[in-house]
Design a protein around this nucleic acid. Sequence first.
DNA 1: CTGAAAGCGCTTACAG
DNA 2: CTGAAAGCGCTTACAG
Lengths: 336, 336
Amino acid sequence: MTTRYGTRPTMKDVAARAGVGLKTVSRVVNGEAGVTSDMTARVQGAIAELGFRRNDSARLLRKGRTASVGLLLEDIADPFSGQLSRAVEAVARAHGSLLFTGSSGEEARREQELALAFCARRVDGLVVVPAGDDHRYLLPELAAGIAAVFVDRPAQLIDADAVLTDNVGGARDGVAHLIRHGHRRIAFLGDLPHIHTAAERLSGYRQAMAAADLPVDEDWVVMAPTDPSVVAASLDRVTGGPAPVTAVLCGNNRITLGVLRRLPSMVRRPALVGFDDLELADLLTPGLTVVAQDPAALGRAAAELLFHRLEGDHAAPRRVVLPARLIPRGSGETAP
Amino acid sequence: MTTRYGTRPTMKDVAARAGVGLKTVSRVVNGEAGVTSDMTARVQGAIAELGFRRNDSARLLRKGRTASVGLLLEDIADPFSGQLSRAVEAVARAHGSLLFTGSSGEEARREQELALAFCARRVDGLVVVPAGDDHRYLLPELAAGIAAVFVDRPAQLIDADAVLTDNVGGARDGVAHLIRHGHRRIAFLGDLPHIHTAAERLSGYRQAMAAADLPVDEDWVVMAPTDPSVVAASLDRVTGGPAPVTAVLCGNNRITLGVLRRLPSMVRRPALVGFDDLELADLLTPGLTVVAQDPAALGRAAAELLFHRLEGDHAAPRRVVLPARLIPRGSGETAP
DNA sequence: CTGAAAGCGCTTACAG
DNA sequence: CTGAAAGCGCTTACAG
C-alpha cells in the first residue's frame, strides 16, 4: 500500500493507477455490467494495491439516501431498550441500513437535540421512544420525507405512526388478577403522570377497581420518580397508615425493583404485580407475577412499519397496539 | 414553508431567497463573525421560511471527519452491552459525536462486515467488543487514520488499544473465595474456549486451584455453549458422577442464569459464584455471590482512550486492565 | 465498452 | 463585509 497515514485513496487515485477513467472504476466497484475482463482486472489490481475502500458517505450524498436509521431510546442500558434495539437492528440489517443510536434520558430537550441531529445527518427514518410532550419540531423533517415511527409512547401534538403496548388493558388485567385473589385495597405506584404509559396504566388500574365496584383511596395512588428511595417511601406510605393496602401494582420495572428491594425489611408483605418482566423474576421467592410487555415485538413492528413507509407507503398514520400478557408466578397470588 | 414533499431546501435555495451569496448563508448558519446584522436577519428569515436544516453529511464530507463513532457489540440486548453502550454514548456525546451501533452476535464474519461498513461510512473511530480471532482486516483502515479501541477482549493478530477486565484475577478470586469456605472439589463452567475471556477465566480457575494445592479433575471443567439446556446438562454432570463437586464457578452471566434455573430441581445444591453481576442477584435466596465486572467503567475508559487518539495521541497501543470485584451475597459462602 | 462533464450540499481558499 | 470558484468523493446523464 502506498497510502500515507491519515490519507485514503479515492476512486480518482484508483483510476490514475489503473490508467482508466473514473467511471470505469465506479463500474467495477459497483459490479455493474459492461466492463471487459481486462479492464476489470486492472482496476481490481489498483484497488488492492492502494487499499481502496469506497467512501459510502460520499456515495450516499450523491444518491440522496443514507441507508441509515436513527433509533432514539430512553436509556440504552435499560433491558427494555436493549431488547427493543436488538429487534430494530435485525430489521434494519435486513434492509441494508445502519443504525444511529442515542438515549434521551427521559429529557425532552435531549430527545429533540438527538432527533434533529439524526435528521441533519439525513437518516432515512427515525424510530423514537419519545420523552417529550410536543413533537411539532419534527414536522418540517417529516414534510421533507424523513419517516418516523414512535414506539412505546405515541407522538404528542402531531399525527404519526405509533407502535404501543396495551397499557390500559395490561394494568387492568394485573389489578383484576389481584382482585380475583381476594384483594380489595390495592395501591398503584406509577411513574410521573406526564409520562404517557404511566397515565395509561393508572387508567387501567382505575378501570379494574371500578369494574369490581371497589373504591379507590387517593392515598393509594402515587405517581412519582422511580428512584429506589422514593419508591421505598411510597411503599411504606401505602402499606402503613389508616387504610393499608394488601396488594400493589407497580407501574414499571424500575418501580418493581424499588419495591422488591424494600420488601425484605417489611413485616407484612403485600401481594405484588409488576408491569414489565425482569430477567430473574421466576427465580425469586416467591416468583414475581408480572404484566409483561414484548419489547422485541414492539421494536420489530416499529422497524417494519418504518421500512414500509420508506418503501413508499404514504397511507394515513397507523397505530399498532400489542397486547400485554399476565404471567402469574406467586407474588400476585397470595391472599390478603 | 414552500418545500415540496420529499425535497429539502439547500443553502443555495436559502441564498436565492435571501438574495445573498452562498458563503454568507454558510457564515450565518455556522455563526461565523463578520456578517452585518441586516444580512444576518435576511438569511435567518429565509431559513425560517424554507424550513432549512443544514445537511451535516454533506458538511462532514467536505470537512474530512464525520463526528461519528462505530460501536460494535456482541449483543445490544445483553445487560453488559447496555451498560457499556451507555458509557460510550456519554463520552461520545461530550465530544460532539454520534454513535453507530451494531451487534456481531458473536460471529466473526458479522463483526467484520459491520466494522468495515462503519469504516466505509468513514467513522472517526471504532469501539469494538470483538468476536473474531483475526483483526488484520482492519489494518488498512487503521493505517488510513481510523482509530480503534477494543473492549472486553483484545484484538487478535494486530497490535491495538484494548481495555479489559482482569479476568484471570477475577476468576482466581472467585475460586479462592470458595476454597476459603472449605470447598476442595470445584467446577468451572465456561463459554467456548476460543473466546478470550473464557480462556482467561479458566486460567484463573486453574491458578487458584494450584495455589491451594488442589487437584483439578478435568471432568470438572466444561467449556461449552451457553444455552440453558447445555448448561443444565453440564451442571448435572459435574455435580453427579464419581467425583461430584461441591462448588461451581460460572464463567459468565448466561451460564450463571442457566445454573440458577437448574438449581431448584437439584437435591444437593453446590455453592455458587458467578462471573458478571445480575440485576436481581441480591434478592435471590440465597443472594448470588459474583465476581463483578464494571461494564460502564470499561466503556468509559475505552471511549476516552479513543477520543484521546482522535485528538492526536499516536503513542504505542495501550492496554488498560480494570479489576474485577468479588461481591459475597450468600451463594458462595455455604460450606461443602 | 469507455470516459469527460456536471452535480449531490456543503466548506475552503481566495478575491474584491 | 461579501461572494464566485474550486473541491470533498462519489454517481448520474450523456457522448463517443
